[in-house]
Amino acid sequence: MIEFINVNKTYTNEIKALKQINLKIEQGEFVAVIGLSGAGKSTLIRCINRMHEITSGQLIVGGMDVSKLRGKEVRRFRRRIGMIFQSFNLVTRTTVLKNVLVSFVPDLSFIRKLTGVYIKEHKIKALTALDQVGILDKAFVRVDQLSGGQQQRVALARTLSQNPEIILADEPIASLDPVTSKIVMDDFKRINKEMNISVIMNIHHVEIALQYADRIIGVREGAIVFDDQTAKVTDDILDYIYKGQTEQVLAEIAKEQAYV
């Protein structure tokens, strides 16, 4: 379980990114976080794995107070949480398999880190993860020869190889076309249901969020203004989350998709 208790986040420029966040996310939920750019969506999910430090309050993940972890404890904690970015964060000039194997580097001995030699168990886990996202046949292909959607699936496989309990996804389909976006979102949904992995996704595409997520969290100016089942989201609620700009947001998304 993930629990925010009166969490605040203020940046050094005095911008209050999160204001009095109180939130519980149970294991196995698929949650979409929506709101305008700059509303605090990315900050919210990045606090979960301590990419951002909270300013005050408590953040409990799996029974641990995240802000109290230090050194090796933080590294061990982060092994339980996968992070997917819009930009994929892959080494494009090497193979798909080697990109997935990178997730095991923290587990390697000093000599193996220097030589880049992985044990058989790691290779099996990496290949299994590639199979889970349907690109096992691309294992020995260079990443720069793949489409954007395939690259995002490599990033997802790299995360799955860690056996995470939670996947945080920060705008994972923002740079993908509509057809590829559906394929990637289908992967997220299947992994969520079949493996009981919690998925917390910051997403700009409102219609896709409503289609795939079980629960919607609406963030506006650093505060949670809506938190409920997807089925309870109405046009009025979307207008409130987006301060009456829902039509404009949807039009911008449609324009982006048409351009891609």
Rank of each mutant, 00 (worst) to 15 (best):
D186G: 07
K24G: 00
K189M: 09
E14Y: 11
R75M: 01
T234Y: 10
M51C: 01
N8D: 15
F77S: 03
I241K: 05
K41S: 06
Y118P: 07
T95L: 07
E121M: 03
D107E: 14
N202D: 12
N196D: 10
Q245A: 11
M83P: 05
S103G: 10
R93G: 09
S87K: 10
R78M: 00
F88S: 02
E165M: 09
I54M: 06
K125T: 02
N192Q: 11
V96A: 05
G222Q: 09
E26I: 01
N49Y: 05
P178W: 00
N49L: 08
N13I: 10
Y118L: 10
D235W: 00
Q162E: 07
I21L: 10
D65C: 02
T234V: 05
Q132M: 14
G149I: 06
G116I: 10
F88W: 08
E256V: 07
I208K: 13
D177M: 07
M83A: 05
I200M: 11
E165K: 08
Q257E: 15
D235L: 09
T246P: 11
R190Y: 04
V31Q: 12
G40Y: 07
G63E: 11
V225N: 02
G134Y: 05
L176T: 10
M1N: 09
N22D: 14
F77R: 05
C47L: 05
T246S: 14
E3C: 10
H205I: 10
F88A: 04
K72R: 13
S181F: 03
N8S: 12
D187Q: 13
I200Y: 03
M51L: 15
P172M: 02
T159C: 13
Q58L: 03
R50K: 15
D137H: 15
N6I: 07
A155P: 06
Y240D: 12
L156T: 04
G134E: 02
F140N: 15
S67R: 07
R220N: 15
I111N: 00
K193T: 11
A129D: 04
E121R: 15
Q229H: 13
A129S: 13
D187V: 00
K232W: 01
E165L: 07
V141H: 13
K255P: 00
I224P: 06
G62I: 06
V199R: 00
Q257H: 10
A129R: 06
F110Q: 07
L23N: 08
H204C: 04
K182A: 12
D170F: 02
A231P: 00
Q20H: 11
V117T: 14
D239N: 15
V133R: 05
K68Q: 12
I60F: 03
Y259L: 14
F4H: 09
K113P: 05
T94V: 13
D137S: 14
N89M: 11
Q151R: 15
R220L: 13
T230L: 03
D186Y: 08
I84P: 00
V74Q: 10
I183P: 02
G244W: 08
D235T: 14
L97P: 01
I237F: 08
K138H: 13
V74E: 11
L59S: 01
F4G: 09
G40A: 12
V74T: 11
T246D: 04
Q145G: 10
I208N: 12
P178N: 05
Q229K: 14
K232M: 10
E256Q: 14
V117G: 01
V61C: 09
D186V: 08
T180M: 14
L108K: 03
